[in-house]
């Protein structure tokens, strides 16, 4: 019936004015600001530093960080719906320990155990947010604290360290530079498809933009919310397990503050913290930018101590977000 119902073509042809070149550039920079800054920073660093563009430096940036970037991927989905997931740092640590523990019983368990726990915990968080109407901040803060507790319990308060057996196939998942990079890249590509090319992606974008409207439009809002937290939890646990595979053991002290780095990457990548607008590609640029900046700061400022490094890092974050705010304000004024 769709096309038959339509009225005769209307007379008016008042085409809205197209965006000017300046506006389009501003819009592109806002959406791909992280990428632009990333290219700029890499170019400057490569030109001025002899150690930055070396293979060993680049491979350490990529290989050592790749799995952690998965937290930002999951976070992108959560933030797009207007929520937040503070539990991913703790889940990362728990995933590593569970992966190492599982690997002592076989590679399959090493993979499945963290995934199952991550999915289960994520689902519970999602249900509390979607069905019980609790604030995501509180629900996942409970996750942040609760999962650390669980971690203590699993490791006898840190006394037991599970090692991944030397010849376990599980180790291969995290070794080298390319395996982690390829695994992470594959997840990001899947993430792009999921967000832009599926109904699930459209629904979660709509929810973040106007949740009330999404409900009235008949979209499966509650189900999508649960799925988003499920995804985030599962990705965090998977990232932790892969990180454990790389380190060869389950480290309990890892992952503290990772949720905030993930949130920062997402925001730098141009996703609105209020939801409804953003991209996985932006997040990818965001995590890379943060990693490169961190590497450079380590490089140039390490003689001043790590406290100074963090301050510079924070200052840079503020500058990037300020720049993006200015750009997006310009766009709104149009």
């Amino acid at each position: 019936m769709t096309s038959a119902v339509l009225p005769p073509p209307a007379t008016a042809k008042a085409r809205a004015p197209r965006a000017t070149l300046g506006e389009r550039i501003a819009s592109q920079v806002q959406r791909r600001g992280a990428l632009a800054v990333l290219v700029l920073v890499v170019a400057i660093a490569s030109a001025t530093s002899s150690t930055f563009p070396t293979w060993s430096n680049i491979s350490s940036i990529l290989g050592n960080n790749a799995f952690v970037w998965l937290l930002a991927l999951g976070m992108t989905f959560v933030i797009m719906t207007g929520g937040i997931d503070l539990s991913v740092g703790s889940m990362y640590a728990l995933g590593g320990v569970l992966g190492a523990y599982g690997s002592t019983h076989g590679t399959w368990l090493a993979v499945l155990l963290p995934l199952a726990v991550g999915a289960a915990w994520g689902t519970v968080q999602g249900l509390l947010v979607a069905k019980a109407g609790m604030a995501p901040f509180i629900v996942t803060l409970v996750g942040l604290l609760g999962l650390r507790g669980l971690l203590q319990a699993v490791t006898d308060e840190g006394a037991t360290t599970y090692l991944v057996p030397q010849h376990s196939a599980f180790r291969h998942l995290g070794s080298g530079v390319w395996t982690p990079v390829l695994i992470t890249a594959a997840f990001f590509v899947l993430g792009i498809v999921l967000l832009t090319r599926t109904r699930f992606g459209h629904t979660l974008t709509a929810m973040g933009g106007n949740e009330n409207a999404a409900v009235l439009l008949g979209l499966p809002v509650a189900r999508t919310k649960v799925t988003v937290y499920l995804l985030s939890g599962t990705l965090a646990a998977a990232a932790g397990a892969l990180g454990g595979a790389r380190l060869g053991s389950g480290v309990t002290t890892i992952g503290i503050g990772y949720e905030l780095t993930a949130i920062a990457s997402v925001v730098i990548g141009g996703t609105l913290l209020t939801g409804g607008s953003g991209s996985v590609g932006g997040t990818a640029a965001g995590v890379l930018l943060l990693a490169v900046i961190h590497n450079l700061i380590d490089h140039y400022f390490s003689q001043y101590g790590s406290a100074f490094t963090d301050t510079v890092n924070g200052g840079f974050l503020a500058a990037v977000v300020l720049l993006q705010t200015l750009l997006s304000r310009k766009q709104q004024l149009e």
């Binding site: 599926t198 459209h202 629904t203 974008t205 709509a206 409207a213 609105l272 607008s277």
Partner: peptide
Amino acid sequence: VPLMSVARNLFLGREPRRFGLV
């Protein structure tokens, strides 16, 4: 949903799909 494109708003929840993708 004001931030989403006109086309997406029009088709939200029943997007035309090919091979499962929009």
